[in-house]
């Protein structure tokens, strides 16, 4: 930045540009990372197994492993940021009315935030080992 913005208008122009530039770089960097994360995810869950065997036990067993929690946290975080910013680009490009553009983005970010929290809770707020043990005890009684 050559000149420090002195007015709100100048700052808005400058920082909007910088934010868009940062997102532009982020889409390339996260995209490169996601190639490996998503290919790995498809390899583990669609190629190494028949996806039709996936049930509660399969997912709970996966989520009781630390490396899966960490892998899936990166996958969730990068995929959500990359995907939601991608959807934002569509709104910026195709919703021409400024008011409607604003509200579409409000809806998108709200839905995305709720779903991200759901995903993060699923990964970190439960001990699926203990839940599995509790079920096995109930069944044994």
């Amino acid at each position: 930045m050559a000149v420090k913005p002195k007015t709100f208008q100048q700052a808005k122009v400058t920082y909007n540009t910088n934010a868009e530039l940062a997102w532009w770089v982020f889409m390339r960097v996260s995209g490169l990372i996601l190639v490996f994360l998503v290919f790995g995810h498809v390899w583990f869950n669609n190629i190494q197994i028949n996806v039709a065997i996936v049930d509660y036990d399969y997912v709970a067993t996966r989520f009781s492993r630390s490396w899966v929690k960490i892998y899936d946290t990166f996958l969730l975080g990068f995929a959500m940021l990359h995907g939601m910013n991608g959807l934002r680009y569509q709104i910026e490009d195709y919703v021409q009315h400024p008011g409607r553009r604003f509200w579409w983005k409000v809806i998108l970010f709200t839905v995305a935030a709720v779903i991200f929290v759901m995903g993060a809770m699923t990964l970190w707020a439960f001990s699926f080992e203990e839940m599995g043990d509790a079920v096995r005890q109930l069944n044994a009684q």
Partner: peptide, 19 residues
């Protein structure tokens, strides 16, 4: 893919409700 991602996170999150 973005819409599938949202759906996929929601459906896998249903494990929160237990077996």
């Amino acid at each position: 893919l973005a819409l599938y991602l949202l759906l996929h996170v929601v459906d896998i999150s249903l494990v929160m409700f237990g077996p």
